[in-house]
Nucleic acid binder design. Structure first.
Lengths: 248, 248
DNA sequence: GTCTATATGGAGATAGAC
DNA sequence: GTCTATCTCCATATAGAC
């Protein structure tokens, strides 16, 4: 068997760090910092609109008011810019979500927080930022919504950036309902995750379907319903498993 | 204001029917029919893997064992080939789903089918084909999973091909639980839809997250859990609204 | 840190021979 | 119905001037 060469989806050889010219990952002065984040902002918006491959670095540079050559200078290439966009907000996000879960459990009574409260602590930081965090956050989540459902990145990106906080979340649930099976918990998270990322995408589908009664952009309506909806689903699976065990 | 010219996501003017050379939408002989569907099959697979923009018509033609010029000949262009891929299986799908809902209601007792049974009739034709319909169906649903979460196509494509059957489904639910509000029903469908399309994508994320305990490809496990999970969610929203009305 | 100029490659589409 | 040859355009990336 010939040695395998890593390739991306378009079949071009993937560059290794050693093959790349050295890149300034961090600008040294104030002007450079501005340019760097202007490129990140522009890329975030455009990638969220039409995905990685439909966007060109010329478009990104133009939107950022910068020169196309600067994406190579700062990031090494288009693909690395994409990674930088994903990473930028993930760190802050995970720290806050961890805090929220810990605060909830610390302040709860002897029975601990309810299933609905645990789910809310997990989803609130996300829904709040899509709704009220400004256009950057909205684009970021729309991008997450897209790549989650993609074979190319759905596993790689999501596992890399978000698995630890998800495991933390599932542990909270497990503490609350210890007799719920691991499988039921993982699949429940899968359903929750799907509902969340479709919400992030804000495609306007429900607007047309409901003839204007509901709106994709109305995150408050989702926030009101999702935690209770998902909690009921999980408790149903738990209950069903218990009944089956009892009658066997 | 200058006259608006329709453009696609890359800013190229969208062709109108009149601007295109006439295309053979239907081949006249057996050989042509084979070539046409080979192109559709190849496009379906490749689009599902990396999306519309990452795939080239040269790749599609090569995979189909045909000449690249034939996609213009049969479909008019790459974009029209994409539409043809989406349309091909939608018709069959909608007919079967309609039948399934009607059969369920015809055979039910005086109270009608349960909420869980209605949801199952809606999702079963989809889950069954992703799991057992062969690689073409699997790719088709993976593609649907991707474009649903996309601003560019999430509303346009899904509303166009699937709104009638969704409305039909929501009517069945409404008959069963008439005091459930329209908003709660539409948002419940939104959650169901998100969970479904993430399932279609089969990205392998849950495999990594659960360290192999659960598998994206294990559609049977989803099928076992999803209808009951979603039914419990809907009934929870309905119940909650009733309680709020009672105490106000 | 930024921009100009350019290298290199490949995209989608089509005219016209077969 | 199919394929060859080619048109036109634009992609990413980089060397080197400023």
């Amino acid at each position: 068997m010939p040695p395998q060469i890593a390739v991306d989806a378009r079949g071009k050889p993937a560059k290794t760090a050693a093959m790349r010219t050295k890149t300034r990952t961090r600008p040294q002065n104030r002007r450079g910092e501005k340019t760097r984040s202007a490129l990140l902002d522009a890329a975030e918006t455009l990638f969220a609109e039409t995905g990685f491959y439909a966007v060109t670095v010329r478009q990104i540079a133009q939107k950022a008011g910068a020169d196309p050559a600067l994406v190579t200078y700062y990031f090494g290439g288009k693909r690395e810019l994409f990674d930088a966009v994903l990473l930028r907000r993930a760190t802050e996000l995970n720290a806050i979500r961890q805090q929220e879960l810990e605060r909830l459990e610390a302040n709860a009574g002897p029975d601990g927080p309810s299933v609905e409260e645990i789910i809310n602590a997990f989803t609130h930081p996300l829904l709040d930022r899509t709704a009220n965090g400004g256009p950057g956050w909205k684009s970021y989540f729309a991008l997450i919504g897209q790549i989650t459902n993609t074979p190319e990145w759905g596993a790689a990106v999501m596992n890399k950036y978000f698995d630890p906080i998800v495991i933390r979340f599932l542990e909270s649930l497990k503490r609350k309902i210890p007799d719920c099976s691991e499988e039921d918990l993982f699949w429940s998270y899968h359903f929750l995750s799907g509902a969340l990322v479709l919400t992030f995408a804000q495609t306007g589908r429900i607007d047309v379907l409901s003839e204007g009664l509901c709106k994709s952009s109305d995150i408050a309506s989702v926030h009101e319903r999702m935690p209770g909806f998902i909690a009921a689903g999980i408790l149903h699976l738990q209950e069903r498993a218990r009944n089956r065990k009892a009658t066997s």
